[in-house]
Design a binder for these strands. Structure first.
Length: 666
DNA sequence: CCTCTGCCTG
DNA sequence: CAGGCAGAGG
């Protein structure tokens, strides 16, 4: 966004770049001049250049975003909005030359190629060294030294660019002659080896930084939540208007929660992320985490603001947000992603990934759900977007299973990336298994020992089941992963979520035009409670469905079909009982081991991960008795003999648990 | 009339 | 499961 004049000039002038004519010529030139040539001279140049090429790709994606322009992108562009990084630590400086550092002007462009190569090489080395040099962010001396070195290399870089654009434009740049430093010594092989080692150490560092960062943040945020509220309010007052400032303040808010060292980690990780090819995905993760945390912070603020103004109740109970399952969809995504990263070609995915995350922020403030069409079409194949308010923000996925209830399978460890993926696709507030409602103490208990606040529903511990864990057991993994995400321990009531979802196009997308397999599964489970749900009940329990005549009748039809199957089974088993010579109705019972129950369970609860309420067994037994009696009494000769039974059964409906009302209950 | 239901069929 | 149909009920 804040392209300075000189920056634009750079773009323009670089259009004369020999090899490329694309809009991103500068990048192209940048790449070729800064990286490819010199690195190609190394034996492992291909690796590095590949890495750097990916950096360019990244940058391109980021270039479209104001958020990254202010910080991350500056590293490569050599230009930056000073104000946007003024609060950041020196680490950034390494990558962000700023406008005031003296740069060598070299209109003549007569530098020997050797100096060139060395300068470029030095730059890469410096950046790497900076990253590896002080992982704890306390070796300031080292930092400064690196900065000095980096400044030199930056100068080389600038000079390089200038060489391309200056033949015509005699830029009035300030600065002295370049000191193309070549502090390196040794052969190219040594260089190569050094680089390799540095790369490895950087990888390790990145991991450490990630961990530390997460720790620090998750520790801090709980303590600072209250203070941050006030801070945020003040900040909003003092800072400029507009969404952008909002987000900036959110970022600062986010950063305030981190220690200074952590901030340095973050900055370093940004830089490293652009350099280290192998850590590409991790870098993406980090970036996404930051952005997501920002988003969550903002949402929290909104919620609290609204709460404080409306005096709403934030009781955790009212927010039994269940976990939407992602199931195979996400699994597939995940797999493909992993496969991609293995094949080292995740660019396309990233390209489709980051921009969306950004759009999410860009649009979250002003855009109405209806306006959001383009951006999401990439993430979501289903174009239909309806503004219906929904309790649980979920985004439509490119899968027929819409609503993507997010499933945490115990047998499947979740990675941050998966959570992030979910967050990105379904919004920060798509439940991670009712996270907000559960006490932190439950978070890390063993999944099997978790006692969930479910009265009527108890999950059967079918760990191996890859199917729906319909009813969550939400917290165990969900909360943990959220912790790892450094997300604040948000306690958001569903109503608040809804209001957020209403305002946030990205989160209101889970409202579906039509019914999906998830809805069908939910309906089947509901059948355990009610055989004859009224349309009102259906509307109540499918809040994420945009009801119309067609949808309603379809849902009703479902239950009609359920009943049909149910009664067929009843009749079948009743007749079987008669055939078996059972003479007493009392001898007919329906237990969980009975064949009848198995048949029914197989139909309505195929995954067998839902604990069927005892009441359903009672009703089934009663129904079976009714059929037995009727058949025994030869009433089945009457064409409408079943109707009497229906009348009895329809009175046995019980209330569907409130938990089913959660839109993404499954 | 509309809604809901059940039955039949594919 | 969904579509079509007919019938009951408001």
């Amino acid at each position: 966004m804040n392209l300075s004049l000189s920056d634009q000039n750079m773009h323009n002038s670089s259009e004369s770049c020999i090899e490329d004519d694309k809009p991103d010529v500068m990048l192209q030139c940048f790449r070729r001049n800064m990286y490819d040539e010199p690195l190609a001279s190394y034996s492992n140049g291909s690796i590095i250049s590949q890495l750097l090429r990916k950096t360019i790709h990244n940058k391109r994606a980021l270039d479209e975003s104001p958020f990254y322009l202010s910080s991350s992108t500056a590293a490569d562009s050599g230009q930056e909005d000073q104000s946007s990084v003024s609060s950041k630590d020196s680490t950034v400086e390494v990558a962000s030359p700023g406008g005031h550092i003296s740069t060598g002007t070299s209109p003549d462009g007569e530098h020997p190629v050797n100096d060139h190569l060395q300068a470029k090489r030095a730059r890469v080395e410096n950046i790497i060294r900076v990253m590896a040099g002080s992982p704890n962010g306390k070796q300031h001396g080292e930092n400064e030294r690196c900065e000095a070195e980096a400044r030199d290399t930056r100068e080389a870089y600038r000079e390089n660019k200038r060489k391309q654009r200056l033949p015509q434009h005699q830029e009035h740049s300030v600065g002295g002659p370049v000191s193309s430093n070549s502090d390196n010594c040794g052969t190219k092989d040594e260089e190569c080896h050094k680089l390799k080692e540095q790369l490895h150490s950087m990888q390790r560092l990145l991991r450490q930084l990630q961990e530390k960062f997460l720790q620090v943040y998750s520790q801090d945020d709980s303590e600072q939540d209250n203070r941050d509220e006030a801070d945020m309010a003040a900040e909003h007052d003092t800072q400029g208007e507009g969404t952008e400032s909002r987000y900036i303040s959110a970022e600062e808010d986010f950063e305030r929660k981190s220690s200074r060292g952590t901030r340095e980690y973050k900055e370093r990780m940004k830089v490293v992320g652009y350099l280290v090819h192998q850590r590409e995905s991790q870098n993406l993760q980090e970036t996404l985490k930051q952005e997501l945390s920002r988003a969550v912070n903002e949402c929290v603020d909104r919620v609290f603001k609204k709460v404080s103004s409306s005096g709403l109740d934030l009781s955790p109970q009212s927010c039994m947000c269940s976990s939407p399952e992602m199931q195979m969809s996400v699994g597939a995504d995940r797999k493909s992603q992993q496969a991609n990263s293995i094949q080292e070609q995740p660019q396309s995915e990233e390209a489709a990934f980051k921009p969306h995350a950004l759009e999410y922020y860009e649009n979250s403030e002003a855009q109405s759900p209806q306006d959001q069409t383009e951006a999401l079409s990439l993430v979501v194949r289903k174009p239909a977007v309806t503004p219906l308010s929904s309790v649980t923000p979920t985004v439509k996925r490119p899968y027929p299973v819409h609503q993507t209830p997010f499933q945490f399978n115990y047998s499947t460890p979740l990675h941050d990336s998966q959570i992030l993926e979910h967050l990105l696709k379904y919004g920060p507030h798509s439940n991670f298994g009712g996270l907000p409602c559960l006490p932190p103490s439950m978070d890390r208990t063993s999944p099997d020992s978790v006692d969930l606040p479910w009265d009527t529903i108890n999950m059967r511990s079918k760990v191996t089941s890859s199917h729906l864990n319909h009813h969550s057991r939400p917290s165990a993994l969900g909360a943990v992963t959220v912790d790892n995400l450094c997300l604040p321990h948000v306690k958001i009531e569903c109503g608040e979520l809804q209001s957020i979802a209403e305002r946030n196009p990205y989160m209101s997308l889970n409202i579906q035009e039509g019914l999906t397999p998830s809805h069908l599964k939910k309906a089947k489970l509901m059948f355990f409670y009610t055989r004859y749900p009224s349309s009102n009940v259906l509307k109540t329990f499918f809040p994420d469905v945009k009801f119309n005549r067609c949808i309603t009748s379809q849902l009703i039809k479902w239950f009609s079909n359920f009943r049909e199957f149910y009664y067929i089974q009843m009749e079948k088993f009743a007749r079987q009982a008669i055939v078996d010579g059972i003479s007493e109705v009392k001898d007919i019972t329906v237990g969980r081991d009975s064949e009848l129950f198995r048949a029914l369970n197989m139909h309505y609860n195929k995954a067998n991960d839902f604990h069927v309420p005892d009441r359903f067994l009672e009703v089934a037994e009663i129904t079976l008795h009714e059929f037995y009696n009727a058949i025994s009494a030869a009433k089945d000769s009457d064409p409408s003999w079943k109707k009497a039974i229906y009348k009895v059964i329809c009175k046995l409906d019980s209330d569907v648990p409130e938990e089913f009302k959660t839109s993404s209950y499954l």
